[in-house]
Design a protein around this nucleic acid. Structure first.
Length: 292
DNA sequence: TGTAGTCCTGGCTGGGTGGG
DNA sequence: CCCACCCAGCCAGGACTACA
């Protein structure tokens, strides 16, 4: 989880501390009460130490990666994405459900690193042997639907704080002969997206959002990089709804693509960044408070 | 030849609707 | 009220194509 071992770092940190305080130490030994320590030199030294510490961590991670299985490396890459570690760093607010008990914490760590989770049924309802990866992709297990609906509802409730006319599962306007760019565009008259809100990107314009949560460990995504998987999923959504929403509903469309561990696609990052800005402005709070 | 993008299909769920 | 059916949506998987 990127938590360093104090025992391993103690010697190095002790050397850094001695270096950092050497000028002061010399003055104390010389009983020099008038001389000033050079604050600029200390600041420079602090920056060097911080840079060295960071590059040592990167080097150590690369060393570990070369010794790990490909699956574990991918899990770590997934956990490093924006949003994927929010459950570790957010405030444990009980009312918002952010306060994990010890079992939930252990399970969350196991999911993060692909370790087996205790207590899950040995066989899935679909009949195949169960494991963590299977629970993330099985349509009958329930998690696929639950996680999608949960993200939809949380996003809608945050939008309600700052936008008018927010609805979940809003229907799109029916098509009356309009030609759509892609063959895979959704042309059903009852087509709907996950969330819509008025005035999110532009004043008065309706913004439509559709959510996709994919498993980066699924066979069809393993072959491609995480970035490419995000883009593939975003593009699929855009092909399905983008053209129709732009030309028929005269709104904007944003695909909100996440991995099962919470990592966000580029468009989702942009969306939630804008949402944080709008919420901060509306509540007269610093953006950092809203994000936290 | 590998990669990225596009498009399509199939298995599944849930909601709506109509008939018994 | 229950059940069957239809339809839309979610997502994985794979075929195909273009391009470097």
């Amino acid at each position: 989880m990127g938590i360093t071992s104090p025992e391993k770092l103690a010697e190095e940190e002790n050397r850094n501390s001695i270096n950092l305080t050497s000028s002061l130490t010399e003055k104390i030994i010389a009983q020099d009460s008038n001389g000033e320590t050079d604050q600029n030199a200390i600041l420079k030294l602090k920056k060097t130490i911080s840079r060295d510490r960071q590059s040592a961590q990167v080097e150590s991670l690369e060393r570990l990666k070369s010794a790990m299985l490909d699956d574990t490396v991918r899990k770590i890459h997934t956990a490093q994405e924006t949003g994927a570690s929010n459950w570790l760093t957010c405030l444990p607010i009980r009312a918002k459900g952010f306060s994990l008990n010890k079992q939930e914490f252990v399970n969350a760590v196991a999911l993060r690193y692909g370790w087996p989770v205790e207590g899950i049924p040995k066989t899935c309802v679909c009949g195949v042997p169960n494991n963590v990866d299977h629970t993330m992709t099985c349509k009958r297990g329930g998690i696929v639907c639950i996680r999608h609906d949960e993200v939809r509802d949380v996003t809608a409730s945050m939008l309600r704080e700052v936008c008018r006319d927010v609805s979940t599962e809003p229907s799109l306007l029916p098509i009356n002969g309009e030609q759509l760019q892609y063959r895979t565009a959704n042309t059903a008259n009852e087509a709907r997206v996950d969330v819509s809100a008025r005035g999110f990107w532009n004043r008065g314009q309706r913004a439509f959002m559709d959510i996709r949560i994919f498993d980066p460990m699924a066979a069809c995504h393993r072959r491609i990089s995480l970035e490419a998987a995000h883009q593939k999923n975003e593009q699929e959504k855009i092909r399905a709804y983008g053209d129709r929403i732009r030309n028929v509903d005269h709104g904007s469309f944003t695909p909100l693509v996440f991995t099962t561990s919470g990592g966000m696609g580029p468009k989702a990052k942009c969306f939630y960044s804008r949402l944080a800005d709008v919420m901060a402005e509306k509540k007269h709070q610093p953006r950092s408070h809203v994000v936290a």
